[in-house]
Design a protein around this nucleic acid. Structure first.
Length: 482
RNA sequence: GGCGCGUUGGUGUAAUUGGUUAACACGCCGCCCUCUCAAGGCGGAGAGUACGGGUUCGAUCCCCGUACGCGCUACCA
């Protein structure tokens, strides 16, 4: 634990669902904050008016809460550094932008989007690097004033210092250096008056006292732009940590084309939040030597997490392993809580769970067989639907040995007070002794009579779940098929 | 194209400050358990650490180059 006042932030733009990659970024921020006794802040980067999606923020917050990644400051929660929506901080950006302008670190530019496109097109044909040719830097003060006065739309661009080399150290990647000549005179303020990511991000991170910026690798190459801004303002640069991307099986950036990428979808399919958190944490991070566990509670993760142990290389999202891990969580989950979670899935599969005692038994029987909650109905079906038999199966039951077994079993069960998890199996052993029939010939008729299926959980469990009455009824049906 | 980052079995990862038969998990295969299917137990195949140089008595680990992958190259984040 550290007593430094670490402050980190998760700063998504509200474009819809929570991408798995964002989830992991959020998780690492959360773990880092909790491990160091710091603060975890949620900031909404809604500066792109054209990409706004209705309800996205609510859904984002819901998902974070559902996963237990509670933030200390942000929308709804509030905090001393608000507002936490960038769209509500426009005046601030304007003010700092003016400061940049007056200090000569930024300048006005008046090209239209079409002009810029044309410029890039020409550069491309000439085989040159496509970037803004910095022509706005050559405008005289009078020219600028004239254009401004006549109301021509403008943007404000960063005046990148030329012929320099920007070096910085990333907590995950080590030393990185980039020539400033490679850096575009980035737009800081758009013609609609909104800031771009770069401006807003730097200002907010500073104003919100962010000490560590933990974000996706796609931002690594824009760090120099940000450093130039921090310097221009005379601010300290926070520590940086750029986490690797999550990849499709073919190693391209995880995308919707190759499967689900939204956290909500995974939750809906019946992946437990604990499993999802556990699995995502292990994608690109590990606790290191002497730790062979794979299953970690959130508390374990908080205790063990350090940013230095995050890998620098991208990680393929291995759904097989997630499935396995989710199955592990399902098997060891608190029975009552699991039942609560599974009931909606059972109902969804057309199963009536109003008999709660039976539901409890069903959940107990089913949980060893599923890796996802949405697999529950198909395994639970046998306990609810009428037994229906194919001709072949019927034949097996009509066999005289089979009939004998079923009759004896029925009479034994009738005299039982109730069926428990372990008083059924001994009955079968007795029948074996009495009739001399054993193995498949003994078990299969019973299994078919009770479920109509050749496969399933052990018979004792099935009988227990069905209960005395239902077992007798099903046996009678099977006997009367003759 | 330019720049940046990365590269250990199919996948996720491990390997004390360079010295191990390169370890663990998922997946796969087999055996055991067992009425069946799972689960569980046991075992196996699968990498000589992208490739090529160098430094060193000795490199997965340090340096350089190449290849490949990915990212960025927007008035998107």
């Amino acid at each position: 634990m550290s007593d430094k006042n670490f402050r980190v932030r998760f700063a998504p733009s509200p474009t819809g669902y929570l991408h798995l990659g964002s989830l992991r970024t959020a998780l690492f921020n959360y773990l880092f904050a909790r491990h160091n006794n710091g603060k975890f802040i949620l900031r909404i980067e809604d500066t792109d008016q054209s990409r706004k999606v209705e309800g996205a923020v609510e859904s984002l917050i819901n998902t974070l809460n559902e996963l237990g990644l509670n933030y200390d400051e942000g929308p709804v929660a509030g905090g001393e550094y608000g507002p936490y929506f960038q769209s509500e901080r426009l005046k601030l950006y304007r003010k700092y932008c003016d400061e940049l302008l007056s200090k000569g670190h930024a300048y006005y530019a008046f090209e239209t989007s079409e002009e810029l496109e044309e410029m890039r097109r020409v550069q491309q044909i000439q085989g040159k690097q496509t970037m803004y040719d910095r022509r706005g830097r050559h405008l005289t003060g009078n020219e600028v004033k004239e254009k401004l006065d006549s109301g021509i739309p403008y943007v404000v661009r960063l005046k990148v210092p030329l012929d320099e080399e920007i070096r910085f150290s990333d907590l995950i990647r080590g030393n990185v250096k980039i020539e400033t000549n490679q850096i575009d005179d980035q737009v800081l303020l758009k013609s609609d008056g909104y800031p771009t990511y770069h401006l807003a991000n730097v200002i907010d991170d500073h104003l919100m006292d962010i000490t560590h910026i933990i974000r996706g690798e796609e931002w690594l190459t824009s760090v120099p732009k940000h450093i130039i801004l921090y310097r221009a303002f005379g601010w300290d640069v926070p520590q940086m940590a750029h986490v690797p991307l999550i990849l499709n099986p073919d190693k391209t950036k995880l995308s919707k084309r190759q499967g689900d990428v939204s956290t909500e979808d995974f939750l809906n399919k019946g992946y437990l939040k604990e499993a999802l958190v556990n699995f995502m944490a292990l994608l690109g991070w590990n606790p290191g030597e002497g730790e062979d566990r794979e299953i970690f509670s959130k508390e374990d993760l908080i205790k063990l997490f350090t940013i230095e142990r995050v890998n620098a290389s991208g990680a393929v999202f291995n759904i097989d392993k997630l499935n396995w891990m989710n199955g592990e969580y399902i098997k060891s989950y608190d029975p009552e809580m699991l039942e609560e979670l599974i009931i909606p899935y059972l109902n969804n599969g057309g199963i009536d769970t109003s008999d709660r005692e039976k539901t409890t038994r069903v959940v107990m029987a089913v949980k060893g067989y599923i890796n996802r909650l949405d697999e529950a109905p198909e395994h639970a079906k046998v306990y609810y639907q009428d037994v229906s038999l194919s001709a072949v199966k019927k034949e097996i039951l009509e066999n005289s040995d089979a009939q004998k077994i079923l009759s004896i079993l029925k009479s034994k069960i009738v005299s039982l007070l109730e069926i428990t998890t372990d008083n059924f199996k001994p009955l079968i052993s007795e029948i074996q002794k009495e009739t001399g029939i054993k193995g498949k010939g003994l078990f299969m008729p019973i299994r078919l009579a009770l479920t109509g299926e050749e496969h399933g959980p052990e018979l004792g469990l099935i009988a227990y779940v069905l209960g005395k009455e239902e077992v007798i009824s099903r046996l009678e049906t099977a006997i009367s098929t003759k």
